[in-house]
Simulated assay, not measured.
Amino acid sequence: MPHAHDAPLEIRDDDLTGSATRALIARHLAGMHEDSPPESVHALGIDALTGPGMRVWSAWYGAELAGVAALKRLDDERGELKSMRVDDRFLGRGVGRALLRHAIAAARVAGLSSLWLETGSPDSFEPARRLYASEGFVTCGPFPPYVEDPFSVFMTLDIAQR
């Protein structure tokens, strides 16, 4: 069997029924609770990620799950990135960037003009903030339903101009 690093990265729609994807979402939620107080955790669980207006992708190297990302449609023009998580085994290999670019492209195809996100302010979120900024996201104020929170950083990207 080829090693994961031998296979190309494949990003596919995910219905969240697979055990690997469900386990990564659970690890994502647990990780968010390790770094932020409960009232500042805005990550979504499986039920919310399968709700209306949601689209979820998973990234795979062969049979190994490398990461997940979701897009929540906020309205006719805006979408919110949710649940971006790369499995620790694949950090630093471009999985997050590939998922982010995939979500941006899908949002554009869906006719959205902007993307929004909430991420953490603690140091452990610095790599995520750097990734978003490197892809053109800029810091902004909270957007509904969020409010100012010292544990949150809010960012947006105008994809109509890209």
Rank of each mutant, 00 (worst) to 15 (best):
V56K: 11
A63K: 13
L65F: 04
G67E: 06
H33W: 00
W57P: 12
V68W: 00
G53E: 01
S40L: 05
A30N: 13
V56N: 14
P38A: 14
P37Y: 05
S36C: 14
V41Q: 11
H42S: 05
I46H: 06
I25S: 05
G31D: 07
M32E: 13
A43T: 02
V41C: 14
W60K: 12
V56F: 12
T50N: 15
A66V: 02
L49G: 06
D35N: 04
L65D: 07
G51V: 08
D47Q: 12
S36Y: 14
S36I: 00
G31P: 03
A59R: 01
L49N: 11
D35T: 11
A43Y: 00
T50L: 09
S40D: 06
G31F: 01
A26G: 04
R55N: 03
P37H: 01
A30H: 13
L65G: 03
P52A: 15
A66Q: 09
W57A: 05
L65T: 02
V68H: 02
Y61K: 15
P37Q: 06
L44T: 04
Y61C: 14
D47T: 14
V68K: 00
H28A: 15
L29K: 03
H33R: 15
S36E: 13
G62R: 11
L49P: 02
M32H: 12
G45D: 11
E34R: 09
E34W: 00
A63T: 15
E34I: 08
P38R: 13
A66E: 04
S58N: 07
E39N: 10
G31S: 10
M32V: 04
A43I: 02
D47H: 11
R27M: 04
G67N: 08
V56I: 13
A26K: 08
M32I: 01
E34A: 11
P37N: 08
L44C: 11
I25L: 12
P37F: 03
G53W: 06
L29G: 11
H28I: 00
D35Q: 12
V41R: 08
A63M: 10
D35K: 01
L29S: 08
M32C: 14
R27V: 03
Y61N: 12
L65K: 08
D35E: 12
L49Q: 09
L65W: 05
T50Y: 01
E64K: 15
L44E: 09
G62N: 10
L44F: 06
V41N: 07
P37G: 09
A43V: 02
P37W: 01
M54S: 05
L29I: 10
L44Q: 13
G31V: 06
G62W: 07
V56G: 07
Y61S: 14
I25A: 06
G31N: 07
S58H: 10
V56D: 01
